[in-house]
Design a protein around this nucleic acid. Structure first.
Lengths: 214, 214
DNA sequence: TAGATTGTTAATCGATTAACAATC
DNA sequence: TAGATTGTTAATCGATTAACAATC
């Protein structure tokens, strides 16, 4: 059977479907049509049906989609049924923010450790997880079969740490450092470049100003 | 003259060009060809030239692009030449992380205030900026002509606060809350949905696992 | 001048939208 | 059954890549 490659655009939309379906579920909505959902989400109904049919026929003609079922299925597609062992490197504000975000845990992202170079943070605990010194990193990653590492450290450090992590078996990097990580093909990298996000915002302000010849 | 609308895809790439050019500049590189840049950035040279030509002819045949000039021009396009008055709402870890990110300031994003509901944070200062109580928000925003507000508060609060900000003249919202903000057309919203980013990562791990029939 | 590289047009590719037969 | 709505094919639109004449 032919493997159809899922486009990046579709992947980006999946978590948003998941979020809307979760909210519908919370509000006790049992079923929803692509048309109804399209109005709420401000995308076309056609796109919703196309997106979902990349993964299977989750709906029923004349009925629509069962919210609970679709929510669960998208959860499976997103890999939220399995647990993911995760660490955070960099116990600064951003690292702490991630560590404190309890909702990750209920989606299966298990925080196994937090690491930092600053010896003054040694012994500190965030949500019950101790901050460890970076020297322990290699061994810890291997012993705990860490799958995901979030990097909230400066860019120069990030590159070498990422390579070190990969050597020690980490499969995926959630990269908050302001740099690209050029890692081997099989390593999954998800970038969160906050400064670039802010520049996109600023671009839009700037363009708006020009269009309204301020 | 016809106004060509710039696609979202191009806007997303601009800050990355800016980052690479900044690094080249730091390394004393004077000029670069689209071909050379394409190899470094792992995009096609054709795309680089197309993207840039949306905004003007910044290069020279037979020479390439002057790094410093192009860097400056992209900075202008991104609106980094003007100052942007900004506030942060929510002085938790994430809000503090943003406040502490000093590099924003050098790009023209001036942090005017930080707000929170928690009275225990009153009087606290982050990088010289005092944390204010949310009650002062409306007046402060008007008095200081705040342009951008970063929202690092829970989703239920975020929706109402965003509307309140817009009423008081805020032009753009940098939204970290896990919800969409349905604001008037003219308001610029830039979403940073960390949980969705993590789910995209998890999707890719999941797909990899399936493809390698683990 | 000859060589290099842009700016730009044309070709290709992929994603979105529209339409509708299938079917619950 | 009649009405509703999906799954899916076809049409359209837009973005990316290729090609090359213009020109530094």
């Amino acid at each position: 059977m032919e493997e159809r490659e899922i486009s990046q655009a579709v992947i980006r939309r999946l978590p948003r479907y998941y979020r809307y379906l979760g909210e519908l579920l919370e509000h006790g909505v049992e079923r929803i049509s692509s048309n109804d959902l399209s109005r709420r989400m401000k995308v076309t109904a056609s796109q919703i049906r196309q997106d979902l049919n990349n993964f299977g026929g989750f709906g029923q003609q004349g009925y629509g989609y069962n919210v609970k079922y679709l929510y669960t299925e998208i959860g499976k597609i997103l890999g939220l049924e399995e647990d993911h062992r995760m660490i955070i490197i960099g116990a600064g504000n951003l690292g702490q923010a991630l560590a404190n975000y309890a909702a990750f845990e209920k989606r299966g992202f298990i925080l196994k450790g937090i690491f930092d170079v600053n010896p003054r943070l040694a012994g500190m605990t965030i949500r019950g997880v101790p901050v460890r010194m970076i020297e322990e990193l290699g061994e810890f990653v291997k012993d705990n079969e860490v799958e995901i590492a979030a990097l909230t450290i400066p860019k120069d450090k990030a590159i070498e740490v990422a390579e070190f992590l990969v050597v020690n078996g980490v499969r995926a990097i959630w990269n908050f450092a302001h740099t690209d990580l050029n890692l081997p093909e099989h390593v999954i990298v998800e970038n969160v470049h906050l400064s670039e996000s802010l520049m996109q915002l600023s671009y839009k302000i700037n363009r708006f100003n020009k269009e309204h010849k301020k």
